[in-house]
Design a protein around this nucleic acid. Structure first.
Lengths: 343, 343
DNA sequence: GTGAAAGCGCTAACAA
DNA sequence: TTGTTAGCGCTTTCAC
């Protein structure tokens, strides 16, 4: 590929890379015409289109989207904030989000807030400073400070994995309370009466737990013993939690875990203790991670369409960025209980 | 917080957000002085520092890093490319990378190339267009086209999770061939003689597999049967692979799996078939994911310090961006075999 | 359909 | 220590 990029550049600054100027000069048109040939090819003549195309091919020009973003105030950058990427729950959402955005010409920036929220402020500053066209908050409990900040900066925000009554802006999630209720009903219908809960200490898991207790009480069941473990939940914490549960007096014939990983831990611990699942103990997970169906016994769990959450969030952001109306910016994505062998 | 941000702005364009200009005017200094007060506070007087600080607090100013990046040709953006974020192996690397970068004021952009590599070109274009200060390639087999492109654009590149003889630029990884060899030696030392391999179909797993076969041959063992499954590997593909292995004639007393998830699948399938692990079948994984130690039996596996890979990559990129010399841009991070119960 | 001018918000370079 | 000037590379506005 013969490069025309080696023409000496006079300016003292700049990256030295090929610019739209170079392409335009080579094509014999004005920069703005070259810009149009690239971005809105319908607006230029066939001839120009071809000349510019050739010039691009010869120079290996790649448009500087930072500059474009500055001029147009559209960065085509979208920020996603997760507590931590290693928590398995949000992974699929981030993946789907990244893909859906990439398909539309947007790039994802990843930010990790940690489950504690201390870094939240610095993170927000770093994100807002990059002027993203949207921010996707993934299962995060943001401080009031943070909410104000997001509201003030005017960047479209999608909150996900939850259904708050007072969304900052747009929202795609489901009711955690409803999950708790439905799981109780499910277990009750299966004849289980001595329920227990093992939950991560994050907001949403706690909300499921509360609803679980309330629903159990409504059905006349006695208060379920529960164990709270630190988020992100792991197989290990699941094992430890079941061990703790077993140490307490009182029989248990079903456990609702706040994640599939926790459930896997519970089943692992159960096996090592000779407790039969589901014979002696029913186990219900949350998330329906890819492995859940293939465990032995296969895991009964709450399925969330995590990928769809990501896609919907991308849709919201992109629509906003392109100036389309987002008529109903709140979507309840729902959930379902997938019945398998473990319960 | 009383906002001074509502002063009417005359210009037809722009985001309407507070700019450095506004801050400078409010502080009664020139924009460049305000810039210095923010970025190199050591260069300005205590008095200026205070006035600018006040102005920032009053206006809620957040510097536009896109504009700053354009002017300084340092975007403080770093791109990470992974096949898919849901493949569990690279997760810790991405997490550590994100954190290490954030701590230094850099933001991560995530790109997913897919295992096939068809999207690679478009992805590269999208990334280069954002002029990142560095690109971290995480376990990806890039086309020659892509290599050329990366070389040409002059952006610092760190390849990770591998030790190629001809790195594009910087490198932090380990020898996959060495892993294959060492696992064979390990199993041989444990008295296993009828080895098998279950591998994902990605480059690196295949390299481990080849070395495994070669080392087995060197020890006089007969050719190990092997099963190749599609990447990303899953618990399900592990189960299926063991099932396939069992269908073939020939005894097997040890399996080397190309991921811990695969190993978990193998152990799951073994249990459902009444095969005792490690009694009848030794299982070795790869990755030492968080759950490996807590399985029952605990998984013997190859440990890679994935987080350290991320940190080291961040260090390389940032050092380059800040103009520091990177004396030896190739790091062998090594690995170790963690002996637990499964083998 | 094409172009000239102006400017997005910031910082490098060079003065003072 | 502080300021002036001139861009970074692109796109908007407005004119032809």
């Amino acid at each position: 590929m013969p490069a025309d990029t080696s023409t000496p550049r006079k300016s003292r600054r700049g990256s030295g890379a090929v610019t739209l100027h170079d392409v335009a000069k080579l094509a014999g048109v004005a920069p703005i015409t070259a810009s149009r040939a690239i971005n809105t090819p319908g607006q230029v003549s066939e001839d120009v289109r071809k000349k510019v195309g050739d010039a691009i091919a010869r120079t290996g020009y790649v448009p500087n989207r930072l500059a474009g973003g500055l001029a147009s105030t559209r960065s085509r950058l979208v920020a996603a904030v997760v507590p931590t990427i290693t928590g398995p729950v949000f992974l699929q959402t981030v993946q789907a989000l990244t893909e859906a955005l990439a398909a539309r010409g947007y790039q994802l920036m990843l930010g990790q807030s940690g489950y504690v929220g201390s870094r939240e402020d610095a993170l927000l500053e770093a994100i807002i400073g990059r002027r993203p066209d949207g921010i996707v908050l993934t299962g995060i409990m943001h401080s009031n400070e943070g909410r104000k900040r997001l509201l003030a900066c005017g960047i479209p925000v999608v909150e996900t994995w939850d259904l708050t009554p007072t969304p900052i802006d747009m929202l795609v999630g489901f009711s955690h309370a409803e999950v708790g209720r439905r799981v109780v009903e499910f277990l009750h219908a299966k004849g289980r009466r001595r329920l227990a809960v093992i939950s991560g200490d994050d907001e949403r898991a706690q909300r499921r737990r509360e609803a679980f207790h309330a629903a159990a009480a409504a059905l006349g069941l006695k208060r379920a013993p529960d164990v709270t473990v630190a988020a992100p939940t792991t197989l290990r914490s699941g094992r430890a939690a079941l061990a703790e549960l077993m140490q307490r007096r009182g029989e248990v014939d079903a456990v609702f875990c706040s994640s599939d990983l926790l459930a896997l831990g519970v089943m692992t611990e159960a096996r090592s203790r000779g407790i039969d699942v589901p014979g002696q103990l029913a186990v219900v997970g949350f998330g329906d991670l890819e492995f859940a169906a293939d465990l032995h016994p296969a895991l009964t769990t709450v399925r969330i369409n995590a990928a769809e959450i990501g896609r919907q969030a991308a849709q919201f952001i992109v629509d906003r960025a392109e100036g389309l109306a987002v008529p109903s910016p709140v979507v309840d994505i729902g959930f379902s209980i997938v019945e398998r062998e473990s319960a």
